[in-house]
Design a protein around this nucleic acid. Structure first.
Lengths: 136, 136
DNA sequence: TTGTACTGTAATAAAAATAATTACAGAATG
DNA sequence: CATTCTGTAATTATTTTTATTACAGTACAA
C-alpha cells in the first residue's frame, strides 16, 4: 500500500458516523478533509461498492453510512482502498537465468501476502466506531 | 511503505548469502536483479549503514554480508528501507476548524504506528537465512 | 607506475503513480 | 423549471520513484 486513500476513506467514514444519519454532501466532506469534492465523490463511489455508504442524488442529496460503524472494521476499510501489494512490487523483472532471480518473485509474493494478512488482522481489531469514538 | 526497495534490498542480501563470503560486484548483483548497477550501489550504501554488508573498493572489490544471515531479520531489512509511514500520509492537511479534521492526523498516526509495529514483528519472525533457504 | 576494474556519490532525466481540476449530464426537490 | 446535488470521464498537474550518466577515488597486479 502506498496511498493517501486510506486516510481519506477513514476521514469520510468518521464524518458520516458523527453525522448520525444526516446526509452529508461531498462539498461538506471535502471541506473537512481539505480536498476537491470530485475526489470525495470518487472515494464515495468506491465505499458504496463495498456497501459502507449510500448516497442520494439530486437536491438535498448526500451520503450516509449504509451499515453501523460497529460493523465496519478498519481492516475492511484498508481492503477497500488497497490496490498494490503491501510492500510494492510494481514491476520487478529479475533475471530468470539466475537461480535467485528466477524464484524471488514467488517467494516475495508469499511473504507479502502473509504479511498483509497479519496487517489486516491487526487493523480488523478496531471498528470504525472505535476509531470514531476517539474524536470526543 | 511503498517502494520496491524492500525487494531490491532482500534480493541483494539473498545473493550475498548464497555467495558465502565471496565478494560480489554491483554489476553482478545488478545483473540478477535486472536494474542499474548504480542503483545497486546506492542500496548497498544504505545496507552498509545498517551494518548488514561490507564493501571493498577497487579492483576485485565487491560486497559481502557483514554479519550472519541468521542475525538479520526481515523486519530489520524492512526498517532499513522504510521511509514513509506504512499507509502513506504524504501530505494531509485537513481543516483545523472541523473537530474531526483537527484531530485526525494524530489518531491516524497512532494507528499507523501501532500497525507498523505489528507488521515489523511479523516480518521479524523470519531471518534472511530462512528466506534464503527457500532458494534450493 | 600505470592500466584496469572496481566503488561511491552526485546530478540529471525519465517514468510512473497519485492527486487535483474541470466539465457536464442526470437526478431529486421545492 | 430553476436549483442543488451526485456520478463520472477526461485532462492536467504534482509528486514520488526509478533510471541513467558521469566521474573522482581506491586497490590490485603486471
Amino acid at each position: 500500500m502506498n496511498n493517501g486513500r486510506f486516510a481519506i476513506a477513514l476521514h469520510i467514514l468518521t464524518l458520516l458516523d458523527k453525522a448520525k444519519g444526516e446526509l452529508l454532501s461531498s462539498a461538506y466532506l471535502a471541506g473537512s478533509i481539505n480536498i476537491n469534492s470530485a475526489m470525495v465523490r470518487k472515494e464515495l463511489s468506491n465505499l458504496r461498492e463495498y456497501g459502507f455508504v449510500e448516497s442520494k442524488e439530486g437536491k438535498n442529496g448526500g451520503s450516509i453510512l449504509a451499515i453501523s460503524a460497529n460493523e465496519i472494521t478498519l481492516g475492511e476499510v484498508y481492503q477497500s482502498v488497497r490496490q498494490l501489494s503491501l510492500l510494492g512490487n510494481q514491476k520487478n523483472t529479475p533475471n530468470p537465468k539466475c537461480p535467485v532471480g528466477k524464484n524471488i518473485n514467488e517467494h516475495l509474493n508469499n511473504l507479502y501476502n502473509d504479511t498483509e494478512l497479519v496487517l489486516i488482522e491487526q487493523l480488523s481489531k478496531q471498528s470504525l466506531a472505535d476509531f470514531s469514538k476517539k474524536f470526543g
